Computed example of a mutant assay.
Amino acid sequence: MKNVLAGFLAVLLTGTSAIAADLYQAEPAPAYVDAPEVSVTQASGWYLRGDIGYSFNKLRGANYYQGGPGGYLADFETAKIKDSYNIGAGVGYQFNNYFRSDLTFDYMGKADFRGSTRGFCGNGAPCVSTDLAALRAYTLMANAYVDLGTYGRVTPYVGGGVGAAYVKWDKLRNTSCATDGSGYCDETTEHGGSGKWRFAYALMAGASIDVTCNLKADVGYRFRHINKGEMFAYENNGGPGRDKGLYSHEVRLGGRYVFNGCDTAQYMPPADIPLQPAVYK
Rank of each mutant, 00 (worst) to 15 (best):
L5A: 11
A10H: 15
D22Y: 09
E27A: 15
P28G: 08
P30D: 15
Y32R: 10
P36T: 02
E37P: 10
E37K: 09
V38N: 12
T41C: 04
T41F: 05
Q42H: 09
G45C: 04
R49Y: 04
G53H: 00
S55D: 06
S55E: 05
G61C: 04
A62M: 00
G67H: 10
G71W: 08
L73T: 13
F76D: 01
I87W: 02
G92H: 01
N96Q: 00
N97M: 01
N97V: 00
T104W: 01
T104K: 03
F105S: 04
Y107P: 04
M108T: 11
K110V: 10
A111H: 07
D112K: 14
F113S: 02
S116E: 03
T117F: 13
R118C: 00
F120K: 09
C121T: 14
A125N: 00
A125Q: 00
L132A: 06
L135H: 02
R136L: 07
A137R: 15
N143H: 09
D147E: 11
L148K: 12
G149A: 11
T150S: 08
R153C: 02
V162L: 15
V162G: 15
A164S: 15
K168G: 07
K171V: 02
K171D: 09
R173K: 15
R173T: 15
A178Y: 03
T179G: 04
S182Q: 07
E187H: 04
G193H: 14
L203K: 01
L203N: 01
C213D: 15
N214R: 06
H225I: 10
N227Y: 01
M231L: 10
Y234S: 14
Y234K: 12
E235C: 06
E235I: 04
N236H: 09
N236I: 07
G239N: 07
G239R: 05
G245A: 03
L246D: 00
Y247E: 11
S248Q: 13
H249M: 05
E250Q: 14
R256E: 07
R256Q: 13
N260S: 05
G261D: 05
G261M: 05
C262N: 14
A265L: 12
Q266L: 01
D272L: 15
I273M: 14
I273C: 10
P277M: 10
P277C: 06
